[in-house]
Simulated scan of single mutants.
Amino acid sequence: MVSGAAAPGEALLLVLDYPGLRLESRVEELGLGDRTGLRQVQLLRAPLPTATDPAGHLAELLARRPEGQCRAVLAYCASAPLADALAGHLAAAGPRPPVVVFDAEPVTTSTVLDAYRDTLTQLGARAAEPEAAELASLVDRPEQFIGAARRNLVAHVSDALRSDGCEPAEAGVLAVALTASCLDWLTHLLVARHVPRPEFPGPVLNIVSAGTPGGDVRVSCDRTSLLRDPRTREATLSFLAAHGALPTP
């Protein structure tokens, strides 16, 4: 994926594809930059945005955009609501770019709470009922949710480290480092859960794999290979061409 400063007026393909380990293929594997002449720019890169409110989070993402004209926005899975909101924001100052999302699914309260429970499981812990109830009550207050999640996760990890013989002070420092990526993911989901629909709606294509419900175009492949399947690439290119997103020869 290309990085660094963009030339003035360069045509951009903005990408929201959450980093981290996963079995599923990635947007960059479609190779769209090489086939379109658009410069592909991944906005979700380290350090990840930290704002828990949608407006602040979008502002952080937009600040990573190099100089040039955004011709389209692409997003995977839970990042889809952010892509639509990002395109809507860009429409306030110019043409609204088309959006292509892949295996997009709604991010709900259950999505956020399930992600927290999954995080605890990965850390070898389990939320007591008061902890779970507190977090469920805070989903609509993202800043407070992240504060409570940080406190709880650090406590769980610190306890586990001390049980393994780690000194308390060292356990606390390590726990903060070990839980940082988990909190980044929860922040991402919370923002996707609360981001409002854009004031300037526009064309959106949802390409899904065989096991994902809904969608506009279905590719008969499993979820892990959707973003390396040539049929996904062709559907994306056809949609972008139909909406004038591709540079003219």
Rank of each mutant, 00 (worst) to 15 (best):
A160N: 07
C166T: 01
G211E: 09
S163E: 13
H243M: 07
E67S: 15
H57G: 06
V176Q: 01
R64T: 12
L12H: 02
E131F: 14
L43W: 08
V2K: 09
P19L: 09
L189C: 04
A177M: 09
V208C: 09
D114K: 11
G165S: 05
L237W: 07
H156I: 04
Q69F: 08
G214Y: 10
D229V: 01
N152W: 15
V41T: 05
A80G: 10
D164Q: 13
Q42H: 15
G68F: 13
S181E: 11
A46Y: 12
V154C: 04
A46F: 11
G214I: 07
P203W: 05
F200V: 11
V2W: 07
P247M: 02
T179Y: 11
A136I: 12
L44E: 11
G215Y: 00
A127L: 15
L61I: 03
V139T: 03
S209L: 02
R117P: 07
L86G: 01
P130E: 03
P201N: 13
G68W: 11
A92E: 09
G124N: 00
S209D: 02
D114P: 02
D84C: 13
L246S: 05
A59V: 03
H57I: 07
R193M: 08
E105Y: 11
L186C: 09
A5L: 15
A180H: 12
R162K: 12
P142L: 00
V204F: 02
T179K: 14
L135A: 06
E67L: 10
D84T: 14
L12C: 08
N206I: 02
A149S: 13
E199Y: 02
E67K: 10
H243Q: 07
M1C: 14
H194P: 03
R162P: 00
D84P: 01
A192T: 01
T36D: 05
C182P: 01
P196Y: 11
A78G: 08
L62S: 06
G88E: 06
T232Y: 01
R26T: 02
E234F: 04
F145M: 04
P66G: 08
E131V: 14
V154E: 10
V112G: 08
P106S: 09
A160D: 06
A128K: 07
P97F: 12
N206M: 00
S181T: 12
P81Y: 09
E105M: 15
H156R: 08
C221T: 12
E234M: 10
P47L: 03
L153Q: 13
V204C: 07
R64P: 09
R141A: 10
A5K: 14
T248D: 14
L178V: 04
Q69Y: 10
A210M: 13
T36N: 11
L190T: 12
R193V: 02
R39Y: 05
G88I: 00
L86A: 06
P8K: 10
L90R: 12
V107A: 05
L30I: 09
A133Q: 15
S238D: 13
V191M: 06
Y76V: 12
R193L: 07
C182H: 13
S25L: 03
R126C: 03
A171P: 02
L32F: 05
A136W: 12
Q42I: 02
